[in-house]
Design a protein around this nucleic acid. Structure first.
Lengths: 190, 190
DNA sequence: CGGTCTCTTGACGGAGTTCAAAGCTAGTGG
DNA sequence: CCACTAGCTTTGAACTCCGTCAAGAGACCG
């Protein structure tokens, strides 16, 4: 819970009684590597904050292989927002890449919470504004870079993270095949 | 201003005096087709709501050609969020695709406004939550579909919008060349 | 009606995929 | 703590989607 409270205080001010309310309205979950928080087709009923570990959001494409859309590291929120907003069937899976500690706010609890603690509206607005900025940036790289450039950019920007995940996940996230990633690595190491 | 107020009322409740405050803190701008609201390298000092018309967000890639990241139609917000959040140099251009009526909230006014009218925090949080959901969906299509499938999906989903914009913009938004779009159209009309 | 955008056509080339198979690594149970 | 196995990574060859270039046809605006 520590990271979570710190994170809130980075963006707004929250009182001790409000923290207590928050604690009673959230669930802290420990999950193992490869455990699923959400499956395609289910209704996504919670928003997940990564206290520790790493989650991924992905779907299965027509050819039957996994396509990763997003990773969430410590201090990031992750959910299938379409499903979460509209209570529609999820289009994505959410899975633990490593053993994780997750803080979950259930959909119905969130509505109540935001009424009881209005400053959380500010917190979520700011967090979403940053996440949205990141997604604009992401699109810029996707459109502007070749696969090789994407790979170089990503490994230079997040060297530590690249060590944390298997290569096939990196390939999937960057939008190419594990075979091609292997070819790139070989080429670039010479 | 009508669309704007209606849009706010779809997500939260705003009082008459609050509307007056809002009116005095925003600027309504009329711009002509091809006018620019933001250039790469400038600091983006406003968030733009499309009351009427259509905007596009794009950048110039290494080869010197325009890459469109996003369109904004009526009732959508558009800005370079990275630049807007951090007062850093913009990575994008914002341009009118058609003659437009735009409502602009300046960066510093927005901070004041959100303090004076707390319900706007809820409004922006919800709008961003929807925009973020749309961007997750966008990524799913980008990763999951071939160029041909992207084209078919887009034209089927937004036939009216496809009529509103030149083909080279559609090609740019979908991430391919006008030449290939032309080839696709020919092939698919047979 | 003249000039500048926009769209089309076709030839060619290359980045990245697919498939199949072999080598490697790490986790698990005995 | 070792051995076995499933899953991950590498290799290479064939193929294909889509970009590039260049040139011409059409459309729209002043």
């Amino acid at each position: 819970m520590d990271n979570f409270i710190k994170h809130i205080n980075k963006f707004t001010t929250i009182s001790q009684p409000e923290i207590e309310t928050l604690k009673s309205a959230t669930k802290t979950i420990s999950i193992k590597k490869k455990d699923l928080l959400l499956k395609e087709g289910e209704i996504c009923r919670a928003n997940y904050f990564v206290e520790k570990g790493c989650l991924r959001l992905y779907f299965i494409n027509e050819k039957g292989s996994e396509q990763i859309i997003q990773f969430a590291l410590e201090n990031w929120w992750l959910t299938d927002y379409m499903s979460f907003n509209n209570s529609s069937p999820a289009q994505f899976y959410i899975q633990a890449v490593e053993d994780c500690t997750i803080i979950a706010i259930a959909r119905n609890e969130q509505d109540k919470l935001l009424t009881e603690i209005p400053t959380l509206e500010k917190y979520f607005r700011k967090v979403l504004q940053i996440a949205y900025a990141a997604s604009q940036n992401r699109l810029k790289f996707l459109y502007g870079y070749s696969k090789e450039e994407s790979y170089l950019h990503f490994t230079n920007s997040f060297p530590a993270f690249v060590q944390r995940i298997p290569q096939y996940m990196l390939a999937s996230y960057l939008g190419f095949t594990p075979e091609y990633l292997s070819e790139l690595r070989k080429k670039l190491s010479q």
